[in-house]
Structure formats: structure tokens, C-alpha cells
């Protein structure tokens, strides 16, 4: 059945089964490929989006539960000041290796910095622990989060 959902500030219609995870609606129905499939089990964080501002694993959210909540994806996160700074910090520090996990990392980092503008290492550990990076770029992810916080203070 058709579901009306709010993605990146726009209204979309997705005619899919009620159980269809948001991840696949984004990728295959709305053609937003930035949100990644990695495990299908909320273990890797590659599919992280914001749901009402909260970092959420989109592979576990059936389209039917979205209702009027606003979904923000990596494609639009740069429109928020925090997201923009996070992207800038990621580029400055050349965080990515293969790059596959980084949209999920950026979504989690943006949610963290929106809530805690100057996170401690413990805050970073807690907020980022659900996002795997198989290339293990954790050293730079941590540094980039701190850099994004610094950019906000500048």
C-alpha cells in the first residue's frame, strides 16, 4: 500500500509492503543511495539516518511506523549547520579509506554534536560504538568529531 513519508523535508509516496525497512525504501524506491546496507541487523550502523533528530538504524524501521516523523539522510545532512561542519571536518582530516561506512558515521556524529556540542572521548565512544568501520579509521573519526566541535566554536 502507498505510504506517505517525510524525507529530507519533502513528502514522498512509497507503494511498498508495510514491513519494508526504511533502508530499502530510501535506496530502491526514493533512489537515495547514500544510506548503506551492511548487515540488515542493526549491527554495523552503515544505514544510520536521523528519525526526528535521533540517529536510527534504518534497516530496522518498517516504513509503516514512520508516520509523520521527518527522516533526514546523508544527502541532506549538509543542510544543517552541524552536519555541514561534520562533513567539512571529515574532508579536512581525510577520514575515509574505502568510504562505505562514512555516511553512517557522519549521521551518528552529527546527532552526537547536535546534542553535545563538545563531546568527551567517552561521549564519542558511546555515540559512535554502533558504527563499524572495517578499514578501522576510528582514530580519524574521533579527531574529526573534535575538529567539527572546534569549527563550531570558531
Amino acid at each position: 500500500m502507498p505510504y506517505i513519508i517525510q524525507v529530507n523535508g519533502k513528502q514522498h509516496t512509497a507503494d511498498v509492503e508495510s514491513e519494508t525497512p526504511l533502508l530499502w525504501v530510501l535506496r530502491d524506491t526514493l533512489n537515495l543511495k547514500g544510506t548503506k546496507f551492511g548487515c540488515g541487523a542493526a549491527q554495523c550502523g552503515a544505514c544510520t539516518v536521523h528519525l526526528g533528530g535521533q540517529a536510527t538504524r534504518s534497516c530496522q524501521i518498517p516504513v509503516s511506523v514512520l508516520g509523520a516523523s521527518n527522516v533526514t539522510t546523508i544527502e541532506a545532512i549538509g543542510e544543517t549547520p552541524v552536519g555541514k561542519r561534520v562533513q567539512q571536518a571529515w574532508l579536512e582530516l581525510d577520514v575515509a579509506q574505502c568510504g562505505y561506512c562514512q555516511s553512517g558515521q557522519i549521521m551518528s556524529a552529527t546527532a552526537l554534536l547536535t546534542k553535545i556540542p563538545n563531546p568527551t572521548d567517552q561521549d564519542i565512544n558511546q555515540a559512535m560504538n554502533g558504527n563499524l568501520c572495517r578499514c578501522a579509521t576510528y582514530t580519524r573519526i574521533r579527531a574529526a568529531i573534535k575538529r567539527a566541535a572546534e569549527l563550531a566554536r570558531a
Binding site: K33, I74, E75, Q87, L91, D94
Partner: peptide, 23 residues
């Protein structure tokens, strides 16, 4: 000299880039 990833911009903005993104 330090040179950055050429695909960096696409990576941080979620543009289609990987095999799984092909349509």
C-alpha cells in the same frame, strides 16, 4: 605532500559511488 581522497566529497555527501549504488 598530504593529498586528500579524490572521492571525499562524494563520500561525505552520500552520492552514489559504490557497486551497490549502481542503477
Amino acid at each position: 605532500q598530504p593529498m586528500r581522497n579524490v572521492d571525499g566529497e562524494k563520500i561525505v555527501t552520500g552520492q552514489p559511488l559504490f557497486g551497490i549504488d549502481v542503477t
